[in-house]
């Protein structure tokens, strides 16, 4: 499903102090596989996720997802790819604080040309799957950390993406909520989704589903 070949990512490339965040990364991820990227902060996990999600572009190398070269996509296609294929769960949730749970969840579907009734129906299903439907009308400011996480999950699932990408998903959660999150991941895996999680939370060391652990250090994959 995902083929990453010899990826490099250099920040401040043209400055006097360029920083190479990813060094020659090559990785193949199969459909319905669960990948746990582990490593300390600054090891390059989040950068790799951003490149897979087309939130940023690699300095060199290529990323192919389902036969499509996403590392070179122009903006319009990259946006379409993100909207259709990627469900991204961010460490800090990145929700629109002024809006309600439901309003946040419908946001990814707005550019899709679907009518508002269909969109709301999809949002309702997604909220139920993430266990946040009972808070649909509450604004993000009124939610606890765990509820925000579930809202972020519902938003990631609303477009029914093939690939779920999670960046430090349990960093702001207590143990109970972290375990609930893992349960949700397990369900998603059972639904055939491909999952990539970047974390250094030891709770991911023992998962109730099959996964592949990849260790990163200083921008390289050191153990697979």
């Amino acid at each position: 499903m995902i083929e990453i070949e010899n990826i490099h990512k250099i920040f401040n490339e043209k400055s006097s102090e360029p920083f190479e965040a990813l060094k020659s990364i090559t990785l193949h991820i199969a459909k319905n596989e669960a990948i746990i990227l582990s490593g300390v902060s600054g090891s390059g996990k989040s950068t790799l996720l951003s490149l897979i999600a087309s939130l940023d572009k690699p300095s060199s190398g290529k990323i192919v997802v389902d036969g499509e070269l996403i590392s070179k996509l122009p903006d319009l296609h990259a946006s379409h790819y993100r909207a259709k294929s990627i469900g991204f769960i961010f460490q800090h949730f990145n929700l629109l604080e002024a809006l309600s749970v439901e309003e946040n969840i419908i946001a990814p579907l707005i550019p899709s040309r679907l009518d508002i009734i269909t969109i709301k129906k999809q949002a309702q299903e997604s909220m139920q799957r993430a266990g946040i439907a009972h808070k649909a009308s509450q604004t993000i400011r009124e939610l606890s950390g765990g509820e925000k996480q579930r809202c972020a999950i519902a938003r990631a699932l609303v477009t029914d993406p093939k690939l779920i990408i999670c960046d430090e998903p349990t960093a702001n959660l207590d143990k109970a909520n972290s375990l609930k999150f893992i349960e949700i991941l397990s369900t998603l895996k059972a639904l055939g989704k491909t999952i990539i999680v970047a974390t250094h939370d030891p709770i991911f060391d023992t998962l109730p589903f099959e996964s592949r652990l990849i260790k990163m250090e200083d921008g390289r994959i050191v153990d697979e």
Binding site: L55, L76, H80, R82, F90, N94, P108
Partner: peptide, 16 residues
Amino acid sequence: KKEIGILRAIGWSIQD
């Protein structure tokens, strides 16, 4: 800026 970044990240194009 954050709002625009979030919308872009969840699939909105520059045009949108």
